[in-house]
């Protein structure tokens, strides 16, 4: 018991350091830290509406994290996850703007389109890596920027709302395409269920299947996995496909749920944040859920800093980054002492 408590206490040190550092930054810009933290907490938790926003922001983090658990298991740095969200949203938007079907058919079709769009964008990174020798970080980063540029082109070009193109995005999708809410709250039960199912499936697949074992073998040592007879190329392509599909699903949900249209920053940085979530979780699927909730809460709460204190909401992202940095460093200290 005391052992567990000590471990917990040690585990909290990096978080405390991150908070201290953030406090220092606030003091440097001359802002009262207590008030800043209170604003973030209130902005995230003060009303059922805020709770709903936190849950909804958790969904893309969980979906992308589920995908990244797969690519990380195979030893791959899928930074391209951000662009894969966008690609899913793009294919979804294309259908949503050009078709009208009853919701019961339309919504599943649009979500499938997200899966396919993301998977294709993910496969592209995989292809560049496996057959072109381009490290997945650079293939991914390049394709992220290209996806953003493509989105802007479509919003200001072919998909611009009648007459005038604006930063506010395309025309709203027809109501049949909207993901149903929970009463008045901006929570989308289908999305929440899909996200939790994704994490559960990835947890089971990595833990208890030969597919998961082989994937991890590749992650540990690609060469020996290959010599053991594992078709490493197919497995790596498969990992990119699955991660891309899950990210694309997140993009689809952003488009037909949260925004009900395509906007320029549709991916919302959730892909990059999910990389942080998975790093912080130490690649453990079940840890991803609480950490994603925490990140979502910080993300939902920090815009309040702009409203009430004229501070930039990037403080939230700074805090998230610092927590991950100090946790990584603390793990190193622990390993060194052991």
């Amino acid at each position: 018991m005391t052992q567990r408590l000590t471990n917990l206490a040690i585990g909290l040190i990096p978080v405390i350091l991150a908070l201290l550092f953030t406090t220092l930054i606030l003091l440097i810009v001359g802002a009262p830290p207590g008030e800043a933290y209170r604003n973030i907490v209130q902005g995230a938790l003060e009303s059922p509406d805020k709770w709903a926003s936190v849950v909804t922001a958790t969904v893309p983090l969980l979906l992308c994290s589920a995908g990244l658990l797969i690519t990380f298991a195979a030893g791959l740095w899928n930074i391209g996850v951000e662009g894969q969200i966008v690609a899913g949203a793009l294919l979804t938007t294309w259908l949503a703007l050009n078709l009208t079907l009853p919701s019961i058919l339309f919504i599943p079709l649009l979500l499938m389109a997200g899966l396919v769009g993301g998977a294709l964008w993910g496969l592209l990174v995989g292809w560049l890596k496996v057959y072109g020798g381009v490290h997945e970080i650079f293939g991914g980063v390049g394709l992220n920027f290209i996806a953003i540029v493509l989105t802007n082109y479509l919003i200001f070009g072919p998909w611009k709302p009648a007459g005038r193109a604006t930063m506010s995005g395309t025309e709203p999708f027809p109501a049949e395409a909207w993901l149903p809410r929970l009463g008045n709250l901006a929570v989308y039960p289908i999305a929440v269920i899909l996200a939790l199912v994704a994490i559960a499936l990835v947890y089971l697949a990595l833990r208890g299947t030969t597919w998961g074992l082989k994937l991890k073998a590749i992650g540990n040592n690609q060469r020996s996995a290959f010599l053991m007879g594992i078709p490493t190329h197919q497995y790596m392509m498969g990992a990119f496909l699955l991660c891309g599909a899950l990210a694309g699903l997140a993009g689809s949900i952003q488009a037909i749920g949260v925004r009900q249209r395509l906007i320029p920053g549709i991916s919302g940085g959730y892909g990059f944040l999910s990389l942080l979530v998975v790093l912080l979780a130490g690649y453990r699927p079940l840890w991803v859920i609480p950490i994603a909730l925490f990140f979502a809460a910080v993300g939902v709460g920090s815009p309040r800093l702009e409203l009430n204190m004229q501070l930039d909401s990037a403080l939230g992202g700074t805090l998230q980054g610092l927590v991950v940095l100090f946790v990584l460093l603390a793990q190193g200290v622990k390993k060194r002492d052991a």
């Binding site: 810009v29 403080l315 700074t318 980054g321």
Partner: peptide, 16 residues
Amino acid sequence: FVLTLLGAELSSFLGN
């Protein structure tokens, strides 16, 4: 990678 994101966020916050 963490520093990439952290640098960007910090620059936005402090540069505001």
